[in-house]
Design a protein around this nucleic acid. Sequence first.
DNA 1: AATGAATGAGCGTTCATTCAT
DNA 2: TATGAATGAACGCTCATTCAT
Lengths: 225, 225, 225, 225
Amino acid sequence: MPTPRFFADKICPVRAKRERRKEARPGELLAAALDLFVEKGFAATRAEEVAARAGVSKGTLFLYFPSKEELFKAVVVENLGGRFAEWNDEFEAFEGTTADMLRYCMRVWWERVGMTKASGLTKLMMSEGTNFPELAEFYRKEVVRPGHSLLRRILQRGIDRGEFAPVDIDHAIYAVVAPMVFLMLWKHSAMVCVDAETSLDPEKYLATQAETVLYGLTRQPGAAA
Amino acid sequence: MPTPRFFADKICPVRAKRERRKEARPGELLAAALDLFVEKGFAATRAEEVAARAGVSKGTLFLYFPSKEELFKAVVVENLGGRFAEWNDEFEAFEGTTADMLRYCMRVWWERVGMTKASGLTKLMMSEGTNFPELAEFYRKEVVRPGHSLLRRILQRGIDRGEFAPVDIDHAIYAVVAPMVFLMLWKHSAMVCVDAETSLDPEKYLATQAETVLYGLTRQPGAAA
Amino acid sequence: MPTPRFFADKICPVRAKRERRKEARPGELLAAALDLFVEKGFAATRAEEVAARAGVSKGTLFLYFPSKEELFKAVVVENLGGRFAEWNDEFEAFEGTTADMLRYCMRVWWERVGMTKASGLTKLMMSEGTNFPELAEFYRKEVVRPGHSLLRRILQRGIDRGEFAPVDIDHAIYAVVAPMVFLMLWKHSAMVCVDAETSLDPEKYLATQAETVLYGLTRQPGAAA
Amino acid sequence: MPTPRFFADKICPVRAKRERRKEARPGELLAAALDLFVEKGFAATRAEEVAARAGVSKGTLFLYFPSKEELFKAVVVENLGGRFAEWNDEFEAFEGTTADMLRYCMRVWWERVGMTKASGLTKLMMSEGTNFPELAEFYRKEVVRPGHSLLRRILQRGIDRGEFAPVDIDHAIYAVVAPMVFLMLWKHSAMVCVDAETSLDPEKYLATQAETVLYGLTRQPGAAA
DNA sequence: AATGAATGAGCGTTCATTCAT
DNA sequence: TATGAATGAACGCTCATTCAT
């Protein structure tokens, strides 16, 4: 029996192609922009090149994003800023020890951000942030502060439960963030070390750093004396 | 025995004065360029601004350096590449243990490079290297390879003397370089961590990393089992 | 005898509704275009904005008018050029003195054109005519020449009837037109005089100017001596 | 006897040409800009065309004026705004009757502004002022307000001396300004009247209007009843 | 008939580099 | 040697117009 799909198959592909295109455009542009921003940096990426890589003309890019800066912000939200809601939920739902939570946190960060192109955005902000203050502020608001906030809540949970010593939380945040930042920079710097890839096992490195941090967090500050 | 310098000092005082001034110009330009390159990056630094900071006109800059790229290369040679001769000599003259040599090496690197503006050049190359392949290659030739070469000779000395285990030298080089690179990136990235300065004691960090590396180098590979 | 309209009204109510809507579209577009052209000028008015104000999409605008220039021409015909037929008929039907005809002419011009948005079109042509020669020529053909022609016939009637002295008609036309043009410019120029509106009573001004012109027309040229 | 000029003639022309050029550039650019702004309006005048008419390249224009808007402002100051100081001085120095002062004022205005290209700037502001609010405000501050201010002082002098009736000065200002504005618009509008030039004698028109205004100013307001 | 996504020529502005002085 | 006026290629962004649906 002929299903409606049979008929639809005849007509829809045409429309479907168009409509899918329309809805896919922003995504394609964001993907192309992510690629190029990570590859060349913000200033050196030309709007026309982003459009070309997404398979559209220069004008089309500005149909979806009013300026290159807004395009960049959208890339940041798409790949980093917009995902904290989900990550915060994971935090709320986590039921294990806080040490495990921190290990899990650093591991999935690597899988979802660190090893992906998205990590290039952080390196980009470190390189060009001073040249584009508005982007820097946006990045701080959308990524840095939520990230610090999440870590702060994790650490606070550990302290509240008596799992961690009552350390200086701000300082501890840096201890956690530092290896992540280092990995992002390392990964995107094929300059100093020709085979940066092979010379460092990121997951092992991260695991080691996690244990180091946890060692410092769990040790009773008074007990050392 | 009269050196050629004695003779030159006598008959060309006028010329000497002139040449000193003439020779001072490039130095002022190089200093201004270093400042600005480190502050804003290569692409974002305008030639005119370099000239202005050096107190000369835009044309004068191009009188001494035929292009912005050549200016950058000169900055690299002045601050990094040109100093390996001296560092190599220090290596040859060093008489202590190789472990001390490595400790010394990392410490003075921090004093002479890491904590100075020159470290910004490395971060710059990591950020913009892909956009300026010729500069990247130059940097590799003038800085990366000599640096690796020096470390390689140090490590080889340790192995040859039986102080170090016969490790994979390339891998060991990265183990030494990594913390240095990390410090340079950290220092020049005011983005993720608002107070990068206060959250990490570079010298302590470096000393710790040195001991970690040395621990791996001195441990008998077979003895671990 | 049944007219075609009778037939059409009966069997095509659906079509009629459709056609009325279809026929209403250009009118809405013309109204929106008039508003915006008068407000911002020809070049500064964006096609998309006209469409948006008429409640249709950009594409629809170009369905009815093949270009922005043609749209403008249609606006000119709708508001100025297409009305001369009626005005000429009024002239033919007028039965009073030619002086009264001229007074009437200037008064109703103010009511029907001068005080309406349509007067902005004249100001627009004065401002942008040199940038759009084809529009300028069109405006001359559709508005200026018919207007001058009508005035010429009025003046000729006065002379033929012995009501006016046999003046130089071209010169007299300018005498009549000048105050009208002045009022249009004045009305649409909020720049020099902040309260252009309140500082001049257009109808009184026009009446005065009419009398001045008529005084010149009726006075026997020889009698002045 | 050979004068120094003989020698100078050999060397200076080269330098002179250069230096004269440098100093002449802004003037040449302002002249070209005035021409084109008056001819085509602000928006329709392309920066490159201004440069070309001044005999320089596009980049050179921006060496002297940081933006097209600033170029326009400079044109306004050069041709209108910057001359009020001199005009104010003439007012202070004038020793005749205030009626003569007003007549003189309108006459020299025509010679120095009205009949020159500068009058096109006023027409331009009337046409495009709403599209460029910052330019409009600048023009108001630099031209409209000083102009009104000067007229206000003239009228006040007449009233203070008992030459004029104590009229509403704001209203009187418009009565004086209106014919000037009209002439500027008329002059730059070759649209409605093909031969605007020949159809109106500006000086005679202005003189007539001056007398009309003066008639209103000198008539005792109470005496009319 | 109506849509609106897509195009691409065009403009304002920047900046490394040149060269006459 | 030193200057700085001049250049022109390049980029971000706009908008009238087209066309597949």
